[in-house]
Amino acid sequence: MGAYAIKRLIWLPFLLIIVTFVTFALLRFGPGDPVQLWLGQHQNDEVRERIRDQLGLDDPVHVQYVRYMAGVITRLDFGESFRYRGQPVRELIGKRILVSLQLNAAAIIITLGIGIPVGLLAALRQGTGWDNLIVAIALALQSLPVFITAPVLLLVFALKVDILPTHGFEGFFSPHIVMPAVVMGVPGIAIVVRLVRASVLDVLGQDYIRTARAKGLGETTVRYRHILRNALIPVATSFGFILAGLVGGTFIVETYFGIPGVGLLTVESVIGSRDYPVIMAFAIISTTLFVVANLVVDLMYPWLDPRIRLGAGYAA
């Protein structure tokens, strides 16, 4: 276990370097000379060359990359936005990322908070009407991507039932977060329900459950200590997958509900103005968060499932 964790931690910076470098090189290779954009109409080759030279834009890509990353790591300096001229990307992103993180956290709470108990219920009532109903609803929800549920719920709540605000964002504990978080959480609920149902059914057939019941443990203890705990391991495994799904949802939900987060900022940066420094910063920050989240989940397996600690194959 210790060796595995160390191996993963050593691998982490390499992973980040590879991804950030590929992103950086792609965007540098992309179109749009930033100096040209700054100068706008004033075409003057001499001035342009001088600025390019000052900024080091003619250096080889890896030199530029090292300089950029040094700025990011030491000063959290992501450069200046193309679109909002002169404004550091850090300022643009800083507040918005907190908004997006709160929204994502709320979506995850909804996904797990509804998905796990409902999946457990379906499995414990296997074969009954409840089970069939839950499975059917989960399948239907899975077929409803965010860009479909968002406008439909928006229509219902903005036009017909005026009980929830549908625009803007006022913090984690305001009713504004409910609609967007539900919309983002829904596709994940379907996945979690199906996962939990399948793995609870799997666990129910295991010998240790029979043993637990045979030795006279109460049904509640069996359910929560033995069944649920073991059944949640696959959910932890696919947590990364659920997170990846949220990234796409962030763009769409923030745009629909007018939430000033990084998703909306990125959509605006891509569509309107090709604001590469902003896209770059978004890519670096979200891949880093993503990799770290996956690592944390991986390192939590042994705590969730003590058998893994003994598994020699796992450390290899």
Binding site: T23, L27, L243, A244, T287, V291
Partner: peptide, 22 residues
Amino acid sequence: EVMSSFPEILLLLIFVAALRPR
């Protein structure tokens, strides 16, 4: 492993944004 450990939408976004104009 590296490629599958990231959200693909994000990298596709960069891939398309960078390469399409060229």
